[in-house]
Amino acid sequence: MHTSDEIYHRVLWDPRFDPERFVMGIAERGAPPKRVALEDFVPGGEIPWHRVVFFEADGHVVWDRASGVDRVGEVVDGLVGPEPGDVLAVPAGHRTAVAWLPPDPLWAPIQHIRRAHDRQIRRWPPHVNVLFGFVPEGEFPRALPLVSAALAETPPFTARLAGVHWFAHREGTTVWLDPAAAGLEPWARLRESLELRFPLCGGRSHGFTPHLSLGRSPDPHPLVREAEALLAPMTARVTELVLLARRGDEPMRVRHRVHLGTGDVHHAAEPPPPGNPGPPPAV
Rank of each mutant, 00 (worst) to 15 (best):
R247K: 15
P179G: 07
R29P: 09
V52Y: 13
L231N: 10
H259F: 08
G172V: 07
H9A: 11
L177N: 01
V23L: 08
H112T: 07
E153S: 15
R216Y: 05
D118K: 11
E171I: 07
G25F: 02
P222N: 15
P277L: 04
A159F: 00
E6R: 14
G45F: 03
L38S: 08
F167H: 15
P280C: 13
R71T: 12
G215A: 12
W107G: 01
A31T: 12
S148T: 05
L223N: 05
E250C: 13
V69H: 12
V128M: 03
V62S: 11
G263R: 03
R10E: 11
R35E: 06
D70Y: 04
P222Y: 09
E56L: 14
Y8C: 09
R16E: 15
G85E: 10
R51T: 06
S213F: 05
P277D: 07
V75R: 08
L194M: 01
T3E: 06
F157C: 00
W49F: 10
V62H: 09
D77S: 14
E270D: 13
V265A: 04
R253N: 11
V164R: 10
A181R: 11
G45P: 00
P271D: 11
E20H: 04
V254Y: 12
P210Y: 01
A188K: 04
E185L: 07
W49L: 05
D77Q: 08
I113A: 07
H117P: 01
E83K: 12
P233G: 15
R160A: 12
P156T: 01
V238K: 00
P272I: 05
V76F: 04
A89M: 03
L146V: 10
D264K: 09
P280E: 02
P220Q: 08
N129S: 11
S148A: 13
D104E: 08
A162S: 06
F17G: 10
E74N: 05
V52Q: 11
I113G: 10
P251L: 00
G183Y: 03
F17L: 10
E74S: 10
P102F: 02
E56I: 11
G248E: 05
V130N: 00
T154P: 02
A168T: 06
G203M: 02
V224L: 07
T173Q: 15
H169L: 12
F41M: 11
V265D: 04
I121G: 02
A162M: 12
M24I: 11
A116M: 02
S193Y: 00
L194G: 14
L230R: 15
A269C: 01
R71Q: 04
V164E: 14
D5V: 06
P125E: 13
P280N: 08
P156Y: 03
D5E: 05
D70E: 13
G215P: 12
F167V: 15
R216Q: 15
H206V: 12
H117E: 01
E139T: 07
R257M: 04
W13Y: 11
A27E: 07
D5I: 07
A150G: 01
W166V: 07
P102A: 03
F167R: 12
P145H: 10
M234D: 09
L223D: 14
A149F: 03
V130P: 05
F55N: 14
P32E: 07
